[in-house]
């Protein structure tokens, strides 16, 4: 099984190579400003999608308030650099901590609910977070918090994304992760097998919220300004779309969907009136033809290709 450890190092190496290539292309200006922006957005969306997938896809808790946690991360992070003049890494960690703590505080009472009731409660809490921020003059209220330094760049986003994906992948492939998945599969049976279901629901929710906070802090430090209107429930829907389109319970699915949707969004940027109409039709069409998402709950990997070629299935890393 130590093959798994080797495989981890290998994928880490592949990530470093990918980083070097893209960074080089940015340095020599083959990838211009517009595409750097989109690459940054892809990274942020991957962090958001994968972290929401941990809650919705793996643990089976229907949350649609993810934008609220992103908002907390964005504002807490921005306050760290703008008001307290602390370094960027502190801002990111504080954003994660802020969103994570709030996620814990919200998750503990709300995760007793299930299904649609949980969905509407998280949606409501996301809105409450936004409206609360809207009413705090210290962070600019309705006009938003301005003058945030642009500290986010490709390097930060890339490594934050890789860290998130590895963190959640490793978590899922452990006894803790299996406990989360058992809650999704059958909560009563999970409890009967000795799994403290409340603990694992709250744990997944807190981890998911904390990474949304990371994404928020990165987001705030790329666009110079954070605004409550960026974090409405429509934003939460966008994130849910990434998760469902990629496949509930598929990390590689979320990554693919985040890339795909960001590109579609970028490609349609030139047609502002038609953009959302096309986007919405695409969404409906994709769901009609592939309701289980692009990858279902499968992961795409080298062994997946092997299986396509007729090789034998091996256990997932």
């Amino acid at each position: 099984m130590r093959v798994k450890a080797k495989r981890d190092l290998l994928s880490l190496g592949a990530c470093l190579l990918l980083y070097a290539i893209i960074q080089l292309l940015i340095e020599v200006d083959v990838i211009g400003q517009f595409w750097v922006l989109n690459i940054v957005l892809i990274g942020i969306n991957i962090i958001l999608g994968v972290s929401l997938n941990l809650i919705n896809g793996f643990t089976g808790q229907f949350s649609i308030g993810h934008a609220g946690f992103m908002a907390v991360g964005a504002y807490v992070g921005a306050v760290m650099t703008v008001k307290l003049h602390l370094p960027f890494i502190v801002a990111i960690l504080a954003g994660a901590a802020g969103a994570g703590i709030l996620g814990f505080a919200i998750g503990l009472p709300t995760l007793r609910l299930s299904g649609d009731y949980l969905a509407i409660a998280t949606l409501g809490l996301g809105e409450i977070i936004r409206i609360t921020i809207l009413n705090i003059p210290y962070v600019g209220g309705a006009s938003g918090l301005m003058g945030i330094p642009r500290l986010t760049n490709f390097t930060w986003v890339f490594f934050a994304t890789v860290f998130t994906v590895f963190f959640i992948k490793n978590f899922i492939n452990s006894s803790h992760g299996r406990a989360c998945i058992s809650v999704r599969e059958n909560e009563i049976a999970a409890e009967a097998m000795g799994v403290d279901t409340t603990k694992y629901k709250v744990m997944a929710f807190t981890i998911g919220a904390a990474f949304a906070g990371v994404a928020g802090a990165l987001f705030a430090h790329y666009f110079y300004i954070v605004h409550p209107a960026s974090f409405t429930f429509m934003k939460s829907f966008d994130l849910l779309t990434i998760v469902v389109l990629g496949g509930l319970g598929s990390i590689t699915g979320s990554i693919t969907a985040a890339i795909l949707l960001t590109f579609v969004s970028a490609a349609l940027a030139g047609y502002p009136e038609m953009r959302m109409v096309i986007y919405s039709l695409m969404l409906i069409g994709l769901m009609l033809f592939r309701p289980q998402g692009l990858f279902g709950n499968k992961e795409i990997s080298l062994k997946f290709f092997n299986r396509l070629k007729g090789g034998s299935p091996r256990d997932a890393a």
Partner: peptide, 9 residues
């Protein structure tokens, strides 16, 4: 959840 996404669409 797929129907929900469709409704959002």
């Amino acid at each position: 959840i797929a129907v929900l996404i469709t409704a959002i669409g």
